[in-house]
Design a protein around this nucleic acid. Structure first.
Lengths: 217, 217
DNA sequence: CGCGGCATTGACCATCCTCAAGAGCGGTGG
DNA sequence: CCACCGCTCTTGAGGATGGTCAATGCCGCG
């Protein structure tokens, strides 16, 4: 998907996943339950992996108990490019839902090429967010996020306009750089304007055009 | 240097530069004058390069004539990791001063390893800026920038507390995500508080401790 | 039933942007 | 040499956006 992964993005989705499934002799996967960690900050990252199902988030914990969300990872996203340089993990990755990841063989030339391209895309995405979308209004940020998420749902074969967000308000607000209250207000405004219907995590996009228009407001 | 390159950072400074100079049979360098382009947005990037002297900026031009600064590049910075994947340049790179760059041989294993590590550092730097330093106040942003720049001056063998910024207010404000007026006000405030003495581009850090304290304000 | 966590809503306020004007400075040409 | 222009930097006043604080509603769970 686009616009979610801290450690990754790139859309090589089902095709690639299936291919890997077939080509690997034994399926080198891992199943995670809600709130289970895939990676702890500082751990040495031995292997990269690709999300097969579920949803995860990467974040950094502060000593005072706070934490900063860095990104969300959904099926097709690659996690752990640190494996390329055998470096320590910059952040922790935890499952938001029951999730399944498949490990990748970094020593494989084709795979490491994908990882490099993935890093490259990630740099462009971060640069865009940092410098080009920095001044987006609160509505623009939420609109962008929802449209990206919507798009990723389509690519996974789900409904474009109706879905359930795997993260809570706190995480989403943290990721978007907003106060929880502000995020809540934006949701309410969209609801009042008839753009969305929202029931906490259940989102229904009623007016895609106006949602897209909100990106440049 | 840290905190400047859009396309790069990594501190392999003089050692590496000298080494390369020696090892390359003919010195594969390029000299650029002020306002001369090293890379145009969209161009295919064939070779990466390292800044030997001077200063450059990377930016994106909008159709309306505006432009967004993405980063500054000073000696030791690597530019053009796109060379690794033979992709098009995401942004333009232009010389702010008379500058010299040395091209790198991407097909060389050691060099491409350095490029990968460099990309990795870049992702961490961007992530930090995007998610961790997003809410920095105006003073904190300028303070961070000046301290980073100061550090890079030291690493290049220049004075820690007195230097000339190679970019104008407009570019710096654009990079930091501030209005020019706001940036000017922060400079003035630091001046009034006796933290800096400033004469447009000539900066003298008078009170390093308070400048560092300003990072967390 | 009552507690705790999460989401929502309201009121207030700080920060930073916008608009407008003035100052400094270098270049050009009469 | 000086007057004019353009550009950048600075400074001031006013206003909008979004954060903080506080109260309430909502739901699941012990």
């Amino acid at each position: 998907m686009n616009g979610f992964a801290q450690v990754q993005s790139i859309n090589l989705k089902p095709t690639f996943i299936t291919e890997r499934y077939k080509s690997s002799h034994r399926s080198d996967t891992r199943l995670l339950r809600r709130n289970q960690y895939l990676i702890h900050e500082g751990d040495l990252v031995e292997r990269a992996c690709i999300v097969v199902s579920g949803a995860l988030k990467s974040h950094i914990n502060y000593c005072n108990g706070d934490s900063q969300v860095l990104g969300f990872h959904i099926p097709g996203d690659i996690i752990g490019h640190e494996a390329l340089i055998h470096g320590p993990a910059f952040c922790s990755v935890i499952a938001l839902d029951t999730s399944c990841v498949q490990f990748l063989d970094v020593s494989d030339a084709a795979t490491s090429e994908i990882l490099i391209e993935n890093m490259h895309n990630e740099i462009q995405r971060l640069t865009r967010q940092l410098h080009l979308e920095r001044d987006y209004s609160t509505s623009a940020r939420l609109a962008t996020f929802l449209l990206d998420y919507s798009q990723s749902q389509v690519e996974s074969g789900y409904s474009r306009y109706e879905f359930i967000l795997p993260m809570g308000r706190r995480d989403l607000a943290g990721y978007l750089g907003l106060a929880v209250e502000t995020l809540s207000r934006v949701f309410s405004r969209f609801r009042d304007q008839g753009v969305l219907s929202v029931n906490t995590n259940h989102v229904h996009i009623l007016d895609p055009e106006r949602l897209e228009a909100a990106v440049s407001l």
